[in-house]
Amino acid sequence: MTTGINAPTRARISARTLRTDRWWLPPLLTVLGLGTFVIYATFRAFMGDHYWVNDYHYLTPFYSPCLSDSCAPGSAHFGAWFGELPGWIPLGFVALPFLLGFRLTCYYYRKAYYRSVWQSPPACAVAEPHKSYSGETKLPLIVQNAHRYFFYAALVVSVINTYDAILAFHSPDGFGFGLGNIVLTGNVIMLWAYTLSCHSCRHIAGGRLKHFSKHPVRYWFWTKVSALNTRHMQLAWVTLGTLMLTDLYVWLVASGAISDLRFI
């Protein structure tokens, strides 16, 4: 290779990097973390079962909103807009592409998978293995600029998840409250935090303004979103965890493997 750090004018050092720390560890952990989620989520999305606990109205976020005749009785609380679906279409097919798109185009996840999966670069001051690089200047990666539209969609889905979590305060006798409510509500709170901490949200809230002083309310929102935004990475990982945990909990309760701990 005669480009990059081996270009003819640069200091003649053959090593790809002289870093002595374990720079390969963060990308490795990222791959493992993302991989675990993708495998689990794919499996569950296509599983088509154990996503609804009718006694307590627990619905896993992976199947929300459930909008077809294939949905378990009671789980389609926005109505059945579609008929029976073939088995290869996940029941949450309406929201899932937007959620996937929101996370794929997220400024944090982009960093995470560019660094780990694509190794561009694997770590700072470690040469990347690619011969040429055009970044996000052309298709397909230019699509990353559409992040804000996925953000709008994610807002809607967050509202739906919130509605789901409220409906879940239910038992066959009326109002109910169990461990599942804590799990579902906790998940929804973290989803909101992740969604609102988004960089596009920060821009829309007030970042695009030239004069904060002329828009005190938006400036206030901007400072709040900015504060959340500094935790965007942490929230991105925490919500992957809470999503899996919530789904797993619903799965286990729905399948009868465990019973929900009920307080009321």
Partner: peptide, 15 residues
């Protein structure tokens, strides 16, 4: 000025 080349991998911020 090539803003599109940036893939926000944040090494600039890191160093």
């Amino acid at each position: 000025h090539g803003l599109g080349y940036c893939n926000i991998t944040k090494c600039c911020t890191e160093v």
